[in-house]
Design a binder for these strands. Structure first.
Length: 400
DNA sequence: TCTGGGGTCCTAGGACCC
DNA sequence: TCTGGGGTCCTAGGACCC
């Protein structure tokens, strides 16, 4: 989807069309921002620079999406809000409306699935679609079906997307970047040399900042240069599987299937504090946040119908270093108090000398409990707090 | 001016078992 | 006295993606 989060907001506030708008980071809703603007009632969007306490407004947030007008100023996703505000003081900042994003996400995916049922979910704003057996899917190399899907999405949502059509997911993903926004790009095997090899290696899905740097250190910048490498050289530097995979990717080869269904591996909640907290000095505040994260994870598990056997924590220190600890219990749980106790045990094993920036709680090794009857499920996941830890876990295990 | 939140997958060592 | 070869599970860290 093109500038998905921003485009969803523009549907609501069409008067922002053409303006530099950035989504994310804002601590207040539009309505609250309106009240802050001298109590004005009329809808008015306040440039970020006009917030007297900028930091209170954008906090420690980052940009999730910038409109194309905002990108002109050098603003991009994942950039810190404070930096974006300085690059473009006239930018309008809006918070992410997750409910609305999820609603449009489900909507555009269901529109696609009606036309082409084999869809792989790749997050809120991205999917892979298997055109192979869709009637008309081969016409004009897939362009006809791609245009049909774009039109259906636009007619029903007002949103645009960009599509890449190719023999596999790897190439389709790269192709989808060629014609943004609202474009279709077709890539066939014979286009490899002309369209793919000139691109930077970072355009390969799976080659991130680290691998990109290591390749650059070897004098490899483009995909074509990567394709020209002797496999043993890459295997020597990156190991057998990564080295072989890199060569395959550079040659446009990818045999991975479009996966239409998958079970979650983990469910987690994390939060970055407004200011760094000290384990001793801010004990009460940290404790309250920790408990709330556990309650949120428990609620997420229960709502989605899962119980977890592994509970873990994540800390980010003031120096941005990350520590994780986890603990696998004898049984499964979705109970907030049980999760809180297991997470507490994890916390005891991690150094707390530096101040903390972020705290997270994670539930892994999941078991689907959807097949239980509703009442039974509620009882099972709600089991809590006998005196002995072991006894409690035994109870939940028996229920499952 | 510091840098979100929610995920997946991979690696590697150690425990433990047959 | 020297020292197998599978396999699974658990834990911690890290790269990467949307």
């Amino acid at each position: 989807m093109d500038a998905f989060f921003a485009s969803v907001e523009l549907l609501r506030y069409p008067q922002l069309k053409g303006l530099p708008v950035v989504i994310g980071g804002a601590r207040r809703s539009v309505d609250e921002a309106l009240l802050a603007a001298q109590g004005q009632r009329a809808l008015r969007f306040i440039p970020v620079a006009e917030f007297p306490l900028l930091k209170d407004y954008v906090g420690r947030g980052v940009i999730t999406t910038a409109t194309y007008a905002a990108r002109q100023f050098g603003i991009g996703s994942a950039m810190g809000m404070m930096k974006a505000a300085r690059l473009c003081p006239q930018a309008i900042v809006l918070p992410v409306d997750f409910d609305e994003i999820r609603r449009f996400s489900r909507l555009f995916k269901s529109i696609i699935a009606e036309i082409a049922p084999l869809v792989e979910d790749r997050g809120v704003d991205e999917v892979y679609i298997d055109f192979t057996d869709v009637p008309g899917g081969q016409r004009e190399g897939g362009r006809v079906l791609a245009r049909l899907i774009q039109k259906s999405i636009f007619d029903k949502t007002g949103l645009t997307c960009s599509m890449g059509v190719a023999p596999n997911k790897l190439l389709a993903k790269m192709a989808s970047e060629f014609n943004k926004p609202n474009g279709v790009s077709i890539v066939v095997e014979s286009d490899l040399q002309a369209k793919i090899w000139p691109l930077h290696v970072r355009k390969i899905n799976g080659i991130g900042p680290k691998a990109g740097e290591r390749l650059a250190a070897l004098g490899i910048e483009t995909i074509g240069e990567l394709a020209a490498q002797a496999p043993h050289r890459l295997v020597r530097h990156f190991g057998q599987s990564t080295g072989v995979w890199m060569i395959e990717a550079a040659w446009g080869r990818d045999a991975s299937a479009v996966v239409t269904h998958s079970e979650p591996v983990s469910i987690s909640r994390e939060t970055t504090f407004e200011r760094d907290l000290h384990a001793v000095r801010d004990k009460a505040e940290l404790g309250a946040i920790f408990t709330r994260l556990c309650e949120q994870v428990a609620a997420d598990l229960q709502r989605k119908g899962y119980a977890a056997k592994t509970i873990g924590i994540k800390l980010r220190y003031e120096d941005f270093k990350i520590a994780t600890r986890d603990l696998t219990a004898p049984g499964y749980t979705a109970d907030a108090k049980t999760i809180r106790r297991l997470a507490g045990q994890c916390l005891k094993r991690v150094p707390l000398d530096k101040r903390l920036r972020l705290l997270g709680v994670r539930a892994g090794t999941l078991l689907k409990v959807g097949e239980l009857a509703d009442g039974e499920q509620h009882r099972a996941v709600g089991t809590s707090a006998p005196t002995q830890a072991g006894a409690e876990l035994t109870v939940t295990r028996q229920l499952f």
